[in-house]
């Protein structure tokens, strides 16, 4: 079980309100990702749930019980830190055993759980090494192992992949996703990387300055962003936001069109511009187009076989059904 409910949770550091009163429901077994730019309060929110920070006001319920004043160790939550926070003087085995040792668990049961976790995480050969002798990915797995053996109600991940290189990050991303499918335990995952959010989450919580901008499944957020912030944050490359006359034509303050929803032509189209940089990725081509009124540069995602060079004139036509319209407050017009 791992149902976590935040009711009017608020956090202030002195006079600075980091998290204004906020409500959030996290269901049992859900993979929830908190995503937002750095400094948006996502890590603080996670630490509030973990109990490492005290809430200024409001209530945190875990499995229907008020846990607001419960110390972190008693909340049945396990956390994986950004720095992994392994104990450097202990072997991998002792690191993983530490929470069970603190709980004074039966040694035979401890060993059984260590073996299971090590087997699941490919750590069996490394049990007698110290963290200093492991690679980044292995340390990451030890940290996860230490969390698994506690059999917690929910896992909390604080930017766990940000210290890994790009290739390893993709691998670990899948391992964590698979772990979630296998354990079927609630996971709360903090990241600033919207790709991680899109690929892993059941539910994404987009935060800005402590406010929840939108909650929803990855595709909901991609298809119907509630405002211009979510529109610009989710999706890669970013959505093109166009203001001015082009937006006014659609009775909106701002219109948004994703790079993949623009048709490219060298002869005719709705908007005309010149190619700035064309990034050929093989499968796709990202073209940065200058000179379109209201949005400069405009990014276009075209097929890999599009042959354009710097300085070429290009015509773009937005696909009408994929056009997003936003009003003066930046909110979506249905």
């Amino acid at each position: 079980m791992g149902r976590i409910t935040l009711q009017k949770v608020q956090k202030k550091f002195g006079d600075v309100e980091v998290i204004p009163p906020l409500d959030l429901e996290i269901n049992d077994g859900e993979f929830v990702v908190f995503v937002g730019p750095s400094g948006c309060g996502k890590s603080t929110l996670l630490r509030l749930i973990a109990g490492l920070e005290d809430v200024t006001d409001g209530q945190i319920d875990i499995d229907g019980e008020d846990a607001t004043m419960v110390p972190p160790a008693k909340r049945k939550l396990a956390m994986v830190f950004q720095s992994y926070a392994l104990y450097p003087h202990m072997t991998v085995r002792k690191n993983i055993a530490f929470p069970m040792r603190m709980a004074k668990m039966d040694p035979a049961e401890q060993n059984r759980r260590i073996e299971n976790a090590a087997a699941a995480l490919n750590l069996t050969d490394y049990l007698d090494r110290r963290p200093g002798q492991l690679s980044g990915g292995q340390r990451q797995r030890v940290a996860i192992g230490r969390a698994i053996v506690r059999e917690p109600a929910a896992f909390l991940f604080d930017e766990p992949l940000s210290n890994l290189d790009a290739a390893l990050r993709v691998g670990m991303r899948m391992e964590i996703s698979e772990l979630h499918k296998k354990l079927d335990t609630t996971m709360i995952y903090v990241t600033h990387d919207q790709v991680e959010a899109m690929t892993m989450a059941d539910k994404i919580v987009v935060l800005r300055a402590g406010h929840i901008e939108q909650v929803g499944s990855p595709l909901e957020l991609y298809r119907t962003p509630r405002n211009t912030f979510v529109a610009g944050f989710i999706g890669s490359p970013k959505m093109n936001l166009i203001e001015g006359a082009a937006a006014a034509e659609h009775n909106a303050q701002t219109i948004g069109i994703r790079p993949e929803h623009l048709d490219v032509s060298t002869t005719a189209g709705q908007w005309q511009g010149t190619v700035g940089v064309a990034e050929h990725l093989g499968s796709d081509t990202f073209i940065h187009v200058h000179g379109v009124a209201g949005c400069d540069p405009m990014t276009v995602r075209a097929g890999g076989d599009v042959d354009v060079k710097h300085g070429d004139t290009i015509y773009l036509t937005p696909q009408a059904e994929h056009l997003h319209r936003f009003d003066t407050q930046g909110l979506r017009i249905a």
């Binding site: 490492l52 972190p72 160790a73 830190f81 003087h89 530490f98």
Partner: peptide, 24 residues
């Protein structure tokens, strides 16, 4: 973060001192 991890792992102040701080 090590101290916080130990705290979440259920180590009290004394355990945190003897298992984390003292070896450090």
């Amino acid at each position: 973060e090590q101290l916080e991890a130990a705290e979440m792992d259920g180590a009290g102040p004394l355990a945190r001192f003897f298992f984390i701080a003292l070896p450090h």
